[in-house]
């Protein structure tokens, strides 16, 4: 069982004389009074020796940050999704086609985000959603691929996430995807950099604890892309991974690298059973 230090955090906050807004870890998330989001559920079988329950990062944020995600009008990340919808309907590239020409309305893609990263049989590789979209751009539209985690790519990913909200994350980790999954798992438990810290040190062993002014979550990615109040834009999961590894005083990996594709598959699988909730709001 995990120990929680909610009370200790409150005591520490008053004792340092600074108000750390602690989260209500028991709050439930319903978006627009309509879409029910599972933010806490039993850990998937592959994780049961490490965790009993998995929790969305939403649970660890302050009341105010939490409430921004409860209504699309208050969620700044939805502006990105709206821009994504515009891109979706706009023809681009030498073929003069838009995403909508082949895929119809964005809602037709409901459920897609929930199963990515996913093995692509033809290409013989695990693909993230952004890799798949770029494949359509390059090979079906004759358009330039977007830079990884850059604004157009993130806005379309936010659109595709938004139409899957409330559906359970369910990435496949067996069969041909297993090799990448194992590689991602190895990265997750590697203690990088001069501080020798792994993802697990912070997000498995210490979620619920404060590290300086930060309330550690489980580092789940069911809420990505995520609008961060800190940099006031939508952020991709790989950019977050990059920042977390950099903070261990390590040479980090790049967004879109094979290492981060594998890590995304593995981290996504740790959240199997949580709802897709992107675009989310975090601090």
């Amino acid at each position: 069982m995990k120990k929680f230090h909610g009370i200790a955090a409150l005591v520490a906050a008053s004792f340092t004389g600074a108000a750390i807004a602690t989260a209500d870890e028991n709050a439930e998330l319903v978006i627009n009074g309509d879409i029910e989001i599972v933010t806490k559920t039993a850990a998937p079988a592959h994780l049961s020796d490490a965790l009993d329950e998995v929790m969305s990062g939403w649970r660890f944020r302050s009341d105010q940050t939490q409430s921004m995600q409860m209504d699309d009008f208050d969620n700044p990340g939805m502006l990105g999704a709206e821009n994504g919808a515009e891109i979706w309907a706009t023809a681009d590239g030498t073929e003069g086609k838009s995403c909508a020409d082949c895929h119809g309305a964005p809602e037709e893609m409901a459920g897609v985000k929930a199963v990515y990263p996913k093995w692509n049989e033809e290409a013989g590789e695990v693909r993230t959603l952004q890799m798949q979209v770029n494949d359509c751009r390059e090979n079906r539209m004759g358009a330039e691929p977007w830079g990884y985690d850059k604004s157009d790519a993130i806005d379309v990913e936010a659109l595709l996430a938004s139409v899957s909200r409330g559906m359970p994350v369910n990435v496949a980790i067996d069969g041909p995807a297993q090799e990448a999954w194992e590689k991602g798992k190895e990265i997750y438990y590697t203690r990088f950099g001069q501080l020798e810290l792994s993802c697990a040190n912070c997000h498995e062993d210490n979620y619920g604890n404060m590290i300086r002014a930060d309330h550690l979550s489980q580092g789940q990615i069911n809420g990505f892309p995520t609008y961060r109040l800190k940099n006031t834009k939508l952020n991709g999961a790989h950019s977050r991974f990059k920042g977390c590894i950099r903070d261990t005083r390590a040479e980090t990996f790049s967004p879109g690298s094979p290492e981060f594709v594998a890590l995304e598959l593995y981290v996504a699988s740790r959240g199997n059973g949580l709802s897709v909730e992107g675009p989310s709001v975090r601090n």
Binding site: F192, G193, Q194, E196, I245, R246, T248
Partner: peptide, 24 residues
């Protein structure tokens, strides 16, 4: 231990140049 080693100079994995994310 999760506690970093403050007086150690070897044995690191992908040692970075401080907090730049670049290689040391």
């Amino acid at each position: 231990s999760m506690m970093p080693s403050f007086y150690k100079t070897d044995g690191f994995i992908r040692l970075g140049n401080a907090y730049t994310g670049k290689a040391h």
